[in-house]
């Protein structure tokens, strides 16, 4: 328990101390909200799909969580190359606890990031449909963050330098985002696109968020949470196996 706590605390301290990182990570979602939200809003409305900002806001929150979560997971490569990982790996604690502490720490950061973006969406005019649903939205954010931090950690466990980093950003993170239905409704999209989206875990995070914040859903809140929960358990298991195999 103490092990998990101290690893969590370390992640959090590092995050809170890098103000540039916090500010920098707000730029992208803001861009999406302003350019897409205001740019595509009129078309969306004309097509009879309602207020685009309401639709987009949960998607952009999910995007912020996705990017931050994968990134904090992948930061493991840096700990490895800059040496700090060795300090944790020679300590008399189980690798599973180390991996879990790191992952929960990363997920907490990504959730904070999601909350910051939530406040940004309020600035551009988004209004959640029910205040009572906000705690549930927070849980969904954390679950989504947990999944993607664990995914980033699992991937980073198999890489030993930064060569793969760009590859992951371009061929994993961006497709995960664009194909998830964060930006457009899956309902009415071409069948192939909808099919692909169903294999994208972010789809369920976005759908659950949209359900709790904007009362719009494709698969139903309970299904979304169940799928996310199962996927998270699986990736935590795989991740801890990969993590425990790390040799330095």
């Amino acid at each position: 328990m103490n092990t998990i706590y101290i690893l969590w605390l370390r992640q959090l301290k590092r995050y809170l101390r890098s103000r540039s990182r916090i500010i920098g990570s707000i730029g992208q979602p803001l861009l999406f909200l302003v350019a897409l939200g205001f740019g595509l809003g009129p078309i969306f409305k004309r097509a009879g799909d309602g207020n685009y900002i309401d639709f987009l806001a949960p998607g952009v929150i999910a995007q912020g969580i996705l990017f931050t979560a994968i990134f904090t997971g992948i930061e493991l490569i840096w700990d490895r190359q800059f040496g700090f990982l060795k300090e944790t790996l020679v300590a008399p604690v189980s690798r599973f606890q180390i991996m879990l502490g790191r992952t929960i720490g990363g997920a907490t950061i990504a959730t904070i990031q999601g909350v910051i973006i939530f406040f940004l969406t309020l600035l551009v005019g988004f209004r959640p449909y029910s205040l009572a649903m906000l705690p549930i939205a927070l849980v969904i954010m954390f679950l989504t963050a947990l999944f993607f931090t664990a995914l980033g950690t699992a991937i980073a466990s198999t890489l030993d330098d930064m060569q793969g980093f760009q590859l992951i950003m371009n061929f994993l993170v961006l497709p995960l985002f664009f194909l998830s239905g964060s930006l457009f409704p899956l309902k009415g999209a071409p069948a192939l696109l909808t099919l692909i989206a169903k294999f994208d875990p972010l789809t369920y995070g976005v759908d659950a968020l949209r359900s709790s914040l904007a009362n719009v859903t494709q698969f139903g809140l309970v299904n979304d949470i169940a799928i996310l929960g199962i996927l998270t358990a699986i990736i935590l298991y795989i991740g801890s196996k990969l993590f425990s195999k790390i040799e330095i």
Partner: peptide, 20 residues
């Protein structure tokens, strides 16, 4: 090779170790 956490203080690096 180096193995400290640069973003933590002296005391925090020690404390981290002690808790582990």
């Amino acid at each position: 090779d180096p193995s400290l956490d640069d973003e933590l203080t002296t005391y925090e690096n020690m404390e981290f170790h002690g808790v582990l």
